[in-house]
Design a protein around this nucleic acid. Structure first.
Lengths: 127, 127, 127, 127
DNA sequence: GTGGTCTAGACCACT
DNA sequence: GTGGTCTAGACCACA
């Protein structure tokens, strides 16, 4: 499904969250698809089940999945109408900060612009 | 100089790093300017000196400041020639991740594009 | 594992760094081997855990080890492809400085040359 | 005479020591030549006189210079006969350590050998 | 005065 | 259990 990178400074559960998020966002996992069980995924990644548990809880909290006791865990369709404006602002602030750092590093204004355009063009696969 | 937000999930030293970075990037602190001494800043923020020192170390590693024992800590002009490509890639990856999150939240593609353009247009104020 | 030399002018954490580096370079600690935990090593050397942690951080930065919170610290295989040229230059500069000192001490040119050759011939033992 | 590099992590007095050592070893300053006075050099480098004082003391201790009260400080001819064997061993150990690090970084054995030869060939100017 | 190292011991997040 | 952060306070070297 995906690989963990222990050398990475990110904690394991965070990597699991990010990877699953990625799969859901890109449509590899579709809404209502069943996710692997905590135990299966923990075996597959040779990680402690509690770690997977924690990742699933985090994803549930963020609205990416939902859990039905006894049945399993399923991907969720993103809420298309009620956009969380506060969250959008938070993310915007983060991107603003990244752009600043980019320019500080010596990246020219036009290069920075190009980088952003590139990133938007990558969206092809997942609309 | 700036305020800490103890409710914030970010660690104290990380907040110090981010705030000082901001001040340097925006030109409030200019190259060769002396930063407050470890002890002074620690008093000002009512934080332990070790915590400030840790932040200063991090900034030094990232190339924002330099330290002369016995003299103090000073802001550094960013290396304008040799851009740190690895760092640029890291930041690009972070922005990519933020954009994804944005789209998942339900922000339309064109709205996301507009947000990025807005952010680029803001650059006026800090050169 | 190794001993500290409190009389030494080198700081404790620096000694820990050098000793562990030595063990990794000579293959006593192999890639992916788990290093003693911060607490264990601190007890073993009767040193404060923070001191050990600082040493581990330094080694991590230098690419000798990597850390996974909750799991431990592990030795790392050196990057065999992309040699860190800047680091090589730094080391070369250090050796240059040592050679000068040697010659100043009165060691003849040919003797200095012989010393260097000897050192290269020693490589047998640690591959 | 020479320049200080504040960005460098070395302490100021250490840089003064190293630079003067360099000048003496390479013969720019000859035996019995008078070194600049503490006050002059401190002005020239815009450094605290105490710092220069300390550097001179260190050089005197290492046998590079000698001071005659009221007259000034003078370079010293290195002791050509009584080589400090212990010091030679210490330096040898340092070089050994640097070579190991070089090889660990991925530098091939033959490249390391070439580096050492290069360093020896550089001796041209100062015998 | 400056930064750098170290200790003793607390508390937290992750596995 | 693991590492990561933080405090309070001491001591040192450098300028």
């Amino acid at each position: 499904m995906f690989q963990l990178d222990l050398k990475n400074r990110k904690s394991i559960y965070e990597q699991v969250v990010d990877n699953l998020k990625e799969l859901i966002i890109t449509g590899v996992i579709n809404p209502e698809d069943k996710l692997p069980s905590v135990r299966d995924l923990s075996k597959q990644l040779t990680v402690n089940p509690n770690t997977i548990q924690k990742a699933y809880r985090s994803l549930e909290f963020q609205g990416y999945i939902y859990t039905v006791t006894g049945l399993g865990t399923f991907a969720l369709r993103p809420a298309e109408n009620k956009i969380d404006e506060a969250m959008v602002l938070t993310i915007k602030e983060k991107i603003r900060s990244e752009i600043k750092e980019l320019l500080y590093l010596g990246v020219s204004f036009s290069d920075a612009q190009k980088i952003l355009e590139d990133l938007m063009l990558e969206r092809g696969g997942w609309k």
